[in-house]
Amino acid sequence: MLKATLHRKQASHKLIERLLAEHDIAIRRFVRIKLGTNQDCDDVMQEVYVRLSQIDDLPQRLADRLDTARSYLIQIANNLLIDRARRAQVRCANMHRGEYETATSLHAPERILSGKRKLQQIDKALAKLKPEKRQAFLLHRVEGLSYREIGDQLSVSVSTVEKYISAALLAIRKTVATTSSNSQGFSKHE
């Protein structure tokens, strides 16, 4: 039993090394662009490694999804970046509590409420879209499928999938922009 677990861990470890070696450049480019700096790349790569090694059924998850490994890694890296940003925001808010009004938006109940409202807005924006655009977007953001897998499922090319997802993102962006006065997360970018 223990031996089997050990064996699985070793296999998983090997897989992670291979994945990171293969997609290192792509993940680093993604992180660099998203953070706007090269500085934290190594840290993030380290976190990606740790996160991957916490996923017990990694080989199963990636089984038969050859085209998806990179897409999957990018999604993991992105989630880590979102977590980092949140932690930084909380730290910052704690440091300046009382100085900035933004601190109130981090109080949990209000945040959940505003999150729900945003989700409703997203729902509405997606509902107005052509079904194939909505479907492509949700298959990627909710189901975690790669663009290529979505293309295969919808029988369209990868570049068409990108057009669909881009159109859906644009629609959501419009909704969020018009209502952003009461959404702290976005106001600072406006």
């Binding site: 989700l119 499922q153 962006r173 406006e190």
Partner: peptide, 26 residues
């Protein structure tokens, strides 16, 4: 702002029951 919009939809992951269309499994 567009990056933030993309990340906002990450919440769709956490509350999958909110997805607006019937999900088609691969």
């Amino acid at each position: 702002a567009m990056l933030a919009t993309w990340d906002l939809t990450a919440q769709l992951y956490q509350e999958p029951e909110r997805a607006v269309t019937p999900k088609k499994r691969l």
